[in-house]
Design a protein around this nucleic acid. Structure first.
Length: 424
RNA sequence: GGAGAAAUGGCAGAGUGGUCGAUUGCGGCAGUCUUGAAAACUGUUGUACCGCGAGGUACCUGGGGUUCGAAUCCCUAUUUCUCCGCCA
């Protein structure tokens, strides 16, 4: 959520940036917000004045009562009835206006960084880095969903039986490979200074609001209605919410957390080749990295996180590229996002495996995650997060890219974690 | 799940209808003393909104109510603790 003060003082700048995101109703909504904001302030001024008078009278009555001047007190009381009525009306109006402002503000996406490429579709994303050779597979190569059957690694049908489509059952060496990847990612993250966290994998409504899944992306989460809890779509939600309503010390920054969790996504409306095999699932595993930083350091940190994720992919010997997302393809909350895509040799397409974003104050404003700066002033911190990494497409690429007539080769770095170097 | 008790500032803990945004202690910060540190002493120390400012308003777990006036009384939700039950 954008800061109201910021919008008030930098309207043109905000509109200019929202245009990069192709946000259509920007001008209408922003104008409306500013009008309501003016209303809000005048209502508060009026209300505060009345409350001040009421408080004054209450004090006066107290003194009169104490002095035994009961009659005079009764006389003064008459005035309060009037004030009370007015106070109630103004409070209601104020609340209404505040709610309206809130409802409008949550519709406004984050303002993108000025270096974000212009554009509307994924084709407009900028490739900023490419690494590794696309492997030349031996004749007879197959996509991962055939490999998983051939080597008895994943049973998609069994998952359908137990839960439904998009809930695969991993078996044997594939289950072990998944566990190996999780441990590998967590080990690398903790070595890099991230504190490992095991958060709840359900969250309450407040947390959903805190990171922006609610109110409008409700349909993307599984909802346990009896207890009003949501299955997390990413560890970002519980981990970032650790810092909801928190005032950190400047010395605590940057906060670096990592967490492995299963992630649950309803993915309503997905179809076709996008959901084939491991490409898109309702449940998958992911290791997430989250940082809360000083506002002056967040872009430096973003680059560091991007490098870190790239390092993981290099270690896994997967060809990948890094995209700087264009305005139209960025997420609602992000100011700048890098996507990492690995080459899936049998599908012959790029698969997104990580998204690293700087949210600046967009999340922390909602979360009220602040820090006390050197001057003792409280200000919003910046938040960033990234996948490091999401498993299914990594597994897909590992299986496809490393298939040989003898079997599937495991990258060196994973062998100690897996306990084997070949799946056959 | 049943019965009982509780929830106050960073922490501990007073306060049971008015002068309470809240005694006090600890912690934090600044200063005095000291070559430096410790100790001692002195001062200071929540957040948000409104206002050019003076200042005003709100917040004692959340929500609602009683009252001229609520940290204090009532209702409700949540959480915590104790006992019982169940259980990985």
């Amino acid at each position: 959520m954008l800061q109201l003060n910021y919008i008030r003082e930098n309207k043109e700048e905000v509109l200019k940036r929202l245009a990069i995101k192709n946000f259509k109703d920007a001008e209408t909504i922003i104008n409306s917000v500013l009008i309501k904001d003016a209303q809000r302030r005048s209502l508060q001024q009026e209300g505060d004045a009345i409350k001040a008078e009421s408080n004054q009278i209450a004090k006066q009555i107290g003194e009169l009562m104490k002095g035994g001047k009961k009659e005079e007190a009764e006389k003064v009381k008459l005035r309060t009835a009037e004030l009370k009525q007015k106070e109630k009306e103004l409070d209601e109006q104020l609340k209404t206006v505040e709610d309206e402002i809130q409802q409008l503000l949550v519709l406004v996406p984050n303002t993108p960084n000025l270096t974000v490429p212009l554009g509307k579709t994924p084709e407009d994303n900028a490739v900023v880095f490419e690494h590794g050779e696309k492997p030349k597979l031996a004749p007879g190569f197959v996509p991962h969903w055939d490999l998983t059957t051939k080597y008895n690694l994943i049973d998609f049908e069994l998952g359908v039986k137990i839960a439904g489509a998009g809930f695969p059952v991993y078996k044997g060496k594939c289950a072990r490979l998944q566990r190996a990847l999780i441990n590998f990612f967590l080990d690398r993250a903790t070595a890099k200074g991230y504190l490992e966290i095991q958060p709840p994998i359900v969250v309450n409504e407040d947390s959903g609001y805190g990171t922006g899944q609610l109110p409008d992306k409700e349909g993307q989460m599984y909802h346990c209605t009896i207890d009003n809890l949501y299955l997390i779509p990413t560890a970002e939600v519980p981990v970032t919410n650790i810092y909801r309503d928190v005032i950190l010390k400047e010395a605590d920054l940057p906060v670096k957390n990592t967490a492995y969790t299963p992630c649950f996504r309803r993915e309503a409306g997905s179809y076709g080749k996008d959901v084939r095999g491991l490409n898109r699932l309702h449940q998958f595993d992911k290791v997430e990295i989250v940082q809360i930083t000083h506002p002056d350091k967040s872009y430096e940190t973003l680059e560091e996180m991007r490098e870190y994720v790239a390092g993981l992919l290099k270690e896994l010997e997967l060809p990948f590229r890094t995209l700087k997302l264009c305005g139209g393809d960025m997420s609602f909350a992000s100011a700048l996002t890098y996507d990492m895509e690995v080459w899936s040799a049998a599908q012959e397409r790029w698969l997104e495996v990580s998204s690293v974003s700087n949210f600046e104050t967009f999340q922390t404003n909602r979360l009220k995650c602040r820090f006390k700066d050197a001057n003792g002033k409280t200000q919003l911190a910046h938040s960033l997060n990234g996948s490091a990494l999401a498993l299914p497409r990594i597994v897909a690429a590992l299986l496809e890219n490393n298939q040989t007539p003898e079997g599937i080769k495991i990258p060196k770095v994973l062998v100690p974690y897996c306990g084997f170097d070949l799946i056959n």
